[in-house]
């Protein structure tokens, strides 16, 4: 595997001071990232999710080199980010959804021209990249508008374009769809898909919107308490999250809750019953047995919502020890 991003036992500790009495202050060390190891191959698009304060942004800041790890080894494109931040910066693109790299008071075009100079992008390359971004992200009307007049969705698209003009090998996206409406989200996702497939840009995507992940990433990493709690395909999450599918059955008449192997009735409403069974199990034998033993009229299967699966994984956390991160 050609690993572009490699983390090996990476830790990041912060010292926080807390008031403990009138003058006394208590010092405490909090581990925002606690022994993180993973690899991302060139051209992969990986979802990186976790609850607030799990250590997602801290990880991204270490990957860009603006935070120095407290321990462990980390390399991006063969470079130790915090040691060679400036050199690495030429090869990566970063979008922090809640922040902007654009010049607030100036027309959008001015910021892009400056990006060209920052990364010393050849003129023809710049023109081609800008044209592609303008077309795919629908920016043509906005180029001469001061950034302060853009809507949130427009600004986000403009920021994503700014991060891609210099053909970065890696793109870090920290909540690129936060606060966007459905149409803008769809546009951004479609664009990211194209960037990943056509330019083979490696993408690490942090988000709270699991639809982003479902539509874009084959691989997802879940972080909680600064540790990786899951790394694999989206489907595998269901097995790990012990999630259940639901069989909704309509009988000819009202019946007492059915008693059947491998499923349990969780709800009854007149002749309709809801039967939960493990997401990993097949529904066929259940349906066969139901049809054989009960007067069945209709049935349907409901897949578990990925949100519920993740919520179960985040369960049992102590809110008190959270850090912004």
């Amino acid at each position: 595997m050609d690993a572009l991003i490699q983390l090996d036992g990476v830790r990041k500790e912060f010292e926080v001071r807390r008031r403990a009495g009138l003058l006394r202050r208590e010092r405490r060390t909090v581990r925002a990232v606690d022994g993180l190891s993973f690899e991302v191959a060139r051209g992969e698009m990986v979802g990186y999710i976790g609850p607030n304060g799990a250590g997602k942004s801290t990880t991204i800041k270490m990957l860009t080199g603006i935070l120095v790890p407290s321990g462990g080894r980390l390399s991006v494109a063969g470079v130790d980010p915090s040691r060679e931040r400036t050199r690495l910066a030429r090869r990566i693109g970063v979008v922090f959804g809640q922040r902007t790299t654009l010049w607030w008071d100036l027309p959008l075009r001015d910021s892009y021209e400056l990006v060209r100079r920052i990364y010393r992008i050849a003129r023809d390359r710049y023109t081609a990249n800008l044209e592609a971004c303008v077309e795919l992200l629908d920016l043509a009307e906005l180029l001469d508008v001061p950034v302060r007049q853009l809507s949130l969705g427009q600004r986000m698209r403009a920021d994503i374009a700014a991060a891609l003009l210099h053909d970065p090998e890696v793109l870090y996206l920290d909540e690129p769809t936060i606060g966007l409406d459905v149409v803008s989200k769809a546009k951004v996702r479609e664009f990211l898909r194209q960037v990943n497939t056509e330019r083979a840009t490696t993408v690490l995507l942090t988000t709270h919107d699991l639809t982003d992940i479902e539509q874009l990433c084959r691989r997802v990493m879940v972080i909680d308490h600064g540790r990786l709690v899951y790394d694999g395909g989206l489907d595998g999450l269901h097995a790990v999250g012990e999630s259940e599918r639901t069989l909704v059955v309509d009988f000819e008449r009202e019946l007492p809750p059915v008693n059947i192997d491998g499923a349990r009735a969780v709800r009854t409403e007149g002749p309709r019953q809801w039967l939960a069974f493990p997401a990993a199990a097949s529904a066929a034998p259940l349906v066969a047995e139901l049809a054989a033993r009960y007067p069945l009229v209709d049935l349907s299967i409901r897949e578990p919502a990925i949100e519920d699966v993740i919520a179960r994984m985040y369960g049992g956390r102590d809110e008190a020890s959270r850090l912004p991160g």
Binding site: K61, T64, I66, R85, T86, R87, A89, R90, I92, V94, F96, R99, T100, T101, I118, Y119
Partner: peptide, 13 residues
């Protein structure tokens, strides 16, 4: 506000 993170991500002093 932490926006300085963006400034630090640029290959510039």
């Amino acid at each position: 506000s932490g926006d300085v993170a963006i400034d630090l991500c640029r290959p510039a002093n």
